[in-house]
Design a binder for these strands. Sequence first.
DNA 1: CGACTTTTTCCGGCATTACCGGAAAGTGCA
DNA 2: TGCACTTTCCGGTAATGCCGGAAAAAGTCG
Lengths: 248, 248
Amino acid sequence: MKTIRKVGQILRLFSATLPEHSTSELSRELGLSTSGTHDLVDALAQIGLLRKIDRGRYRLGPLITTLYRAMEDSSALVEAARPIMTALVKDHGETLHLTLQDQGRLLVLAANEGTRALRVCKDVLESPLPLHNTAAGLIHLSGLTHAALENWLDEHAHPGASIVSRSTFRNQLAEIATDGFFAAPLGREPDVVCIAAAVYGHSNQPLAVLSMVVPESRYARQPRAFRGVVVEATALVSQQLGDNPKAN
Amino acid sequence: MKTIRKVGQILRLFSATLPEHSTSELSRELGLSTSGTHDLVDALAQIGLLRKIDRGRYRLGPLITTLYRAMEDSSALVEAARPIMTALVKDHGETLHLTLQDQGRLLVLAANEGTRALRVCKDVLESPLPLHNTAAGLIHLSGLTHAALENWLDEHAHPGASIVSRSTFRNQLAEIATDGFFAAPLGREPDVVCIAAAVYGHSNQPLAVLSMVVPESRYARQPRAFRGVVVEATALVSQQLGDNPKAN
DNA sequence: CGACTTTTTCCGGCATTACCGGAAAGTGCA
DNA sequence: TGCACTTTCCGGTAATGCCGGAAAAAGTCG
């Protein structure tokens, strides 16, 4: 559906740093005619996904907020995960994240910062790390369909990128998918280890990822204990989701 | 753009109380074929506006969160309004709302509950009141384009509805548009008065509404004072937005 | 203030795509 | 295992999106 793909492309041009666009900026970005682009954005404004600010200038519209509220109010995932995350931080003092992925980027749904004097900042997964540079991201990648993974590789596996061999990478992901768990240094921070496990929804489908980010010095002392803690927590969240007929 | 209109229709079927739909539910609701509906929802899932949960079952997708975050992070409106609302609650103790409208429904962006022993609950504008039953809603209606207002009237002005005469109603809105201010009882609550004024954005376009909801007994003692307070607060917000080149 | 440039908006024709029928595949239940 | 129902798939056709070109609008400059 080409029109819907264009809808996605247009909407993704709006960001916190570029919240407003004109018709001609959008048409240049998308390689479309100005009149065609105008038809599109006008229609998006009519349904509420965009809002016309001035003549020819648009921002994200109220339907975004409406849908987000609907989504948030119904999120059994966050509801199930929150108390488990709170308890985990209290017991272990380390920083936690609950994440989804959206078109190859991490999306943080909930973050609880650790309580110890030396702790990993909870914003570490907000910066635009490539998915394959975090254990949480690799868990997400391992849950992608083959087609979605190929699309992602088309974008990220090229000369000069850190993924050298596609087949090696796919094999790595297959192992991770089997384990449902992975631990690795966070991006280029050798002092920080990310320990991540998949949260499964109804019908055992990977849904979200719960991860703990820990100073390497503490992780090195008892890596299996950390693995156990994270796997157990995600099993609890998955279990609550599985028991809940509304669970997503 | 019929396809985009269908996108809007589909997305609006997802709510907090109905967060998940099957393909055949959606096709029945929209009066479309199941295969046509499948094409649509599959495409929406590919761009991230929906997410496929199970075979043939969909929920709102991660792009909603991504866009909402982008929107929230850039909202000069809320940023401008928040300290002014905080000061107003502190000084006067009454409940405040900052609202947008989305296709004829109020959308609360920020709500500060009053501090006095007898106070109006901050949730009062969350319940699905028709726009014309609140002063805030009437301010919003008065800012609609003629076409958008006609669409809204087509939905709301019919035999048995509370709007008896379209032309009388339009005249009332024209006066409200001129004043940029209105006060009236809240819905069917004779004890609560809603006092609302328009917030203007760049190029003097009505953008949002700031309103105060007050026990009628307190309002009756000094109605002009309340009017002055609300009008001054919205003028301050409008002024800050006008001075801000990023203002929406 | 007029000329000029650029952008936006509008609209109808045509090329492209959305839509759907019908069939295959999948799922649940008795 | 058969049946009922839903989902998914796919190709043909009718409907729609896309765009060119012109009109309108807005801003800039001399």
